[in-house]
Design a protein around this nucleic acid. Structure first.
Lengths: 218, 218
DNA sequence: TTAAATTATTAGGTTAGCCTAATAATTTTT
DNA sequence: AAAAATTATTAGGCTAACCTAATAATTTAA
């Protein structure tokens, strides 16, 4: 059994690795956790002892398969709780992260599965990140920025990149939320704006800044 | 801001007091928290420093108004989460306590209120205990054992005393859950059994042991 | 009201997880 | 390649929350 803090380190190591960093170093971990490299080293030693990571100076930290299982299950819980907070408790996209950061550590054998079922087995969290299944598989991340979408195709909104109140409010005014379908009608090369159709009827033009901050999937 | 552990102590002090114990002593607290009286004294000192309790050997520990506000809000969160786990995640009555024990410490200014709203402002938790309102008021506890109910009156099920799997399964077979209405048809003095009506149609006889373990309110 | 039992308190120790400051190693710049 | 900058590591400390063991105080029972 691992502590809350160990879970956080494993999660961060997983995320840093996935972000394509060359080497997961104590300094990088400390930066991500807003603490001290010396603290990170303390914890790396502990995780090595527990065989949850392997670590050497030249190659950095790598999760063992046991470590990866824990990291993914923490991420799964985090993303499920984010969906819960957004869908059920009507939080905004920018408010869910900090609370989910706490909820992800609640210990119970079947809580995540029950939550998953209750939420209708969501595929993505409100930031467009895929939710791992209970056996640790994550769907291929087929999300893209609306900017990169193809004319004529229809997409589903899965999240936002920018989650400033301004952007969120603008989205609300356009009736765009998680799951809204958006069809790309036209791309205007002059200013990189886009003509899109929201749902079945509404049509509007959106700026490049807009389309760079809306995550969709096919 | 108080730590998780401080919250637990405040909650226990509140509960012990409410249970009618004459004096909330370090030993009683330690027993409730499954730890050592010496630890309890450490914490009592800390809580006195923070002006969340007053303590002297002869009178025991008493919550200050600041301490009481915190204790009640922890209890509110605990009971709301219990309702969530039971109603939404389909946990059984006997499984919710331990998870709620963790969830009650999640920190967020408006989480409890949002949860409360989402759950439809429940009055009681699955153990029949009243849920404090956001301003800290608790409804008069009008719960009673079915055993004490009056013939001819209709009651609402609010919880169970015994939460063994056997009892819970029996209840499920009788279609009795939180909120089910039960009308007392007759009391049989011979063996203290009862004839009750469940919902609108179903009628059955229940033993004294049964009626001593089902909590209802008017 | 003594003796026995229980409770309160203190002293001193442990562990997890953090810290700073010093030093060693490595990388980057010039 | 030498100097400058960055990173890794160690040593030594800190705090919260627990612990055990010893002692003092109080309560209960004989």
């Amino acid at each position: 059994m691992q502590t809350l803090s160990e879970e956080n380190y494993l999660k961060i190591i997983y995320n840093l690795d996935k972000q394509g960093i060359k080497k997961v170093t104590p300094t990088a971990i400390a930066k991500a956790l807003l603490n001290n490299p010396a603290s990170a080293i303390d914890m790396l030693k502990k995780l090595v002892d527990k065989k949850l990571i392997i670590y050497d100076k030249t190659r950095g930290a790598k999760l063992t398969s046991a470590g990866k299982i824990i990291a993914i299950s923490v991420i799964r819980r985090h993303r499920l709780w984010e969906v819960f907070l957004l869908d059920k408790l009507a939080y905004e996209w920018d408010q869910v992260h900090d609370i989910a950061e706490q909820l992800e550590h609640i210990r119970s054998p079947d809580l995540a599965d029950r939550l998953d079922k209750f939420l209708g087995h969501p595929q993505y969290d409100p930031h467009g990140d895929p939710i791992p299944s209970s056996n640790g598989e994550m769907v291929m991340n087929s999300r893209l920025m609306l900017e990169e979408a193809n004319v004529g195709k229809t997409y589903k909104v899965i999240g936002v990149k920018d989650s400033s109140p301004e952007f969120l409010q603008y989205l609300k005014r356009l009736d765009i939320g998680i799951g809204t379908s958006i069809t790309v009608k036209e791309k205007i090369s002059f200013d990189n704006s886009m003509m899109i159709q929201i749902g079945k009827n509404r049509q509007t033009s959106v700026s490049r800044v807009f389309s760079q901050n809306l995550l969709v999937c096919e």
